[in-house]
Design a binder for these strands. Structure first.
Lengths: 313, 313
DNA sequence: TATCCTTACGGAATTCGTAAGCATG
DNA sequence: CATGCTTACGAATTCCGTAAGGATA
C-alpha cells in the first residue's frame, strides 16, 4: 500500500471513474494508474471499483466503505506537510482562497490588503467560482478557505464561520422615476424590469423570497454573476438593478444612483468555510480572524481543532 | 512520504528513540531506518527527532505535533486492510485478545468456546500480561481486544465496555477455624496470614480498600498473579486465600473450602477495551457481544463507529 | 469507430543491505 | 571500547512510460 495508490483511488472517484482523466489529473500515464489501482486491489484482496468489462463504472460495496478512510489518510498526509511547513517557514507559504466575484472584487479587498502587509511572503491565490464550486474546491482540498454568501453551510465537509452582514440595494440610472420615491416598496420595484444576480449568487435567494412572500412576480430581464455586468446593463437602460450595496461606488458609478432597500430584503451573511479535519497554517488562521474579527482567535482554533484531533489517539 | 517512513517514526517513539531497536522491531537494517527517517525529515523540512550528536534523544516540538497524525495515518492504513479482509474472507482471520491470567484461565473459557464454534476459521491468539500491559498491547495495535478488571479505563487510547461483575471469596484449607464462623468480617480475616493477588491484579485494589476503610492492616504474606498459585499456597498452609470466586472449583479443589465474602469487598467489573478509531472485524464485534451480552450489538457498533468515523469527511 | 482499460517489455529510478567511519557515554 | 548513527557503494528490486491488444458503447 502506498500513497500514490490511494491518491489514484480518490481521484478516480472524483473523475467519474475514468482512469484516463485520473492520469491527466495527476500527471502520470493511464497505464500507470490502471496498474497501481489493480495492485492495491490485489493487496487488499477486494475490488474497490465496479467494472463493466474493462471500464470502471463505480464503487463496489467494499469500495464505498474504504473510500472515506482513503480520503482521511490523504488528508492527514497533507496535514503533515502543512504542519511541518508551519515550523520550517513560519510566514512563508501559499493560501488558496476560493470565492465569488462579488467577494473578490469588493468585500475582500481590504482584508487582503491587511493580510498582504502582514504576510508579504505568503502567496495568495484567489480562485473564482459560483458558491457551489467554491465549496467543492475547499471540500476537495484544492483551496484552503471558501468565502461566499450561499451554499457553504450545505457542504458536509465544511465548517463555516459567519463573517459580515450586508444588504442589497437598488440602483437606477440618474434621473430615474424611482429616485423621487420617498420609500421604496417591493410593489414599486415589481413595476420595472429588473437586472440582478444569477439564481445561485450573492443572496439572490433572499431577493426571490421577498418578492414571493408578497405574491409578486418581478420581471427579471437580465441576470449576471457579478455587479459589474449588472451595472453595465442598468446604465444602458435595460432596467433597475439589485446588487449588493457594497458593490456601489459613488465616485466610480457616476451615472447611477443607489437607493436604500435594506428594509425590503432579508440581510445576508457572508460566510467563510474550511475543510473539516484540515490543518491550517498560522497565516490561514490569521486570515480567518481578519474575516471574522469579533470571533477571538482561540475560539476559531478550538473549533478547527475539534475536527482535526477528535479521534483521541 | 511513504508508509515505511511513518512506521519507522512511530516505532522510534515506541522504542525509546533507539533506531537499532527500531530496525530489529521492523525487520530491516539499522542503516535503512536511519536513512528513511532522514529522508522524511528532509522532505518535510523539519527535524522530527531531537539529536545529541548522532544519537536520537526525543521528539522535537514539531515532532510532538506530527506524531499523533502519523499514528492516525498508520492506524487508518491498518483499518483499510481489515475492512478489506472483512469483505474478502468474512469469517476468516485472526483475533488477538490481550488479557490477564484470571480471565484467560477462568472467565473467558465459555466465551471462547462459543466463539470458536461460531468462527472456526478465526485464529484466536491469547496474549497474557498484567492489566497495564494488556491495555498497552491494544493501545499499540498489537492486540485487538483487551480484557481485564483493572487499568483499562485509565488508558486514553481505549474505549471500554463493562462485562460481568464478580466478587472475591475467601478460601481456606478444609477444617480451618473460619469454616465455623457464621458470617465473615474483615476483622476476622485480618487475624490470619493472607495469600492473594499481586497489587496490580484482579481487583486487588478493592481488597486493600476494604481493609483500609476499617483501619485494618492485613498480613499479606504471599502475593501472586493468579489463583492457581494462590490456591497452592493456601493448600500448603501458608494462610487463607482471597481470590476471585470464579476461580474456585469445588470438584477440583477438594482440599479447600470457599467462604462467601461478597459483603466484605466491593464488587468488581471485568471490562473489555478496544482501541479508539480502530476498525473491528465482524467476528471481533461478535466477541465483544459475547462478553457483554446485555449490550445489544447496534449499541456496541455505534460506540465504536463514533471513534472510527467522527471526522466527518 | 472512438474511447477506455489491461498487459508485456525494458530502461530508469529507487530501495536496501553491507561495510566502513565517526560520535557518544 | 561498546553502543549507536551516518554515509558510500553497488546489487536487486521496483517503478513507470511506451506500445500493442482487447473490450465497450
Amino acid at each position: 500500500m502506498n500513497f500514490n495508490q490511494l491518491k489514484f483511488v480518490r481521484e478516480a472517484s472524483r473523475q467519474d471513474f475514468n482512469l484516463t482523466e485520473v492520469a491527466n489529473a495527476v500527471f502520470v500515464t493511464q497505464s500507470g494508474v490502471s496498474r497501481k489501482i489493480k495492485e492495491l486491489e490485489d493487496e487488499l484482496g477486494v475490488e474497490i471499483f465496479q467494472r463493466r468489462g474493462k471500464r470502471l463504472t463505480g464503487l463496489t460495496e467494499p469500495g464505498k466503505q474504504l473510500l472515506p478512510v482513503v480520503e482521511r489518510i490523504l488528508l492527514d498526509a497533507e496535514n503533515l506537510r502543512r504542519m511541518a511547513e508551519q515550523f520550517a517557514r513560519e510566514d512563508v507559504g501559499r493560501l488558496d482562497v476560493a470565492t465569488t466575484h462579488t467577494q473578490a472584487r469588493y468585500a475582500l479587498v481590504p482584508i487582503i490588503k491587511t493580510f498582504r502587509a502582514r504576510f508579504p511572503k505568503v502567496h495568495l491565490a484567489l480562485h473564482q467560482g459560483n458558491p457551489n464550486q467554491v465549496a467543492d474546491m475547499v471540500g476537495q482540498g484544492e483551496a484552503d478557505i471558501a468565502i461566499a454568501t450561499e451554499a457553504l453551510d450545505a457542504h458536509p465537509a465544511l465548517v463555516t464561520f459567519p463573517g459580515y452582514r450586508w444588504h442589497h440595494c437598488v440602483i437606477v440610472p440618474a434621473g430615474h422615476d424611482l429616485e423621487r420615491a420617498s420609500k421604496l416598496t417591493l410593489e414599486m420595484l415589481a413595476e420595472y424590469p429588473i437586472v440582478t444576480y444569477d439564481p445561485q449568487f450573492t443572496g439572490r435567494s433572499h431577493i426571490d423570497k421577498a418578492f414571493a412572500a408578497k405574491g409578486l412576480a418581478p420581471d427579471v430581464v437580465i441576470t449576471a454573476m457579478d455587479a459589474d455586468v449588472i451595472k453595465t446593463y442598468v446604465d444602458a437602460g435595460f432596467g433597475i438593478g439589485i446588487v449588493a450595496s457594497i458593490a456601489f461606488d459613488r465616485a466610480r458609478d457616476q451615472h447611477l444612483r443607489q437607493l436604500e432597500s435594506g428594509h425590503l430584503f432579508e440581510a445576508n451573511t457572508t460566510k467563510l468555510g474550511v475543510r473539516k479535519g484540515a490543518y491550517l497554517r498560522n497565516f490561514a488562521l490569521e486570515f480567518i480572524h481578519l474575516f471574522t474579527p469579533e470571533l477571538e482567535r482561540a475560539k476559531i482554533q478550538s473549533t478547527l481543532k475539534k475536527y482535526l484531533a477528535n479521534r483521541d489517539l
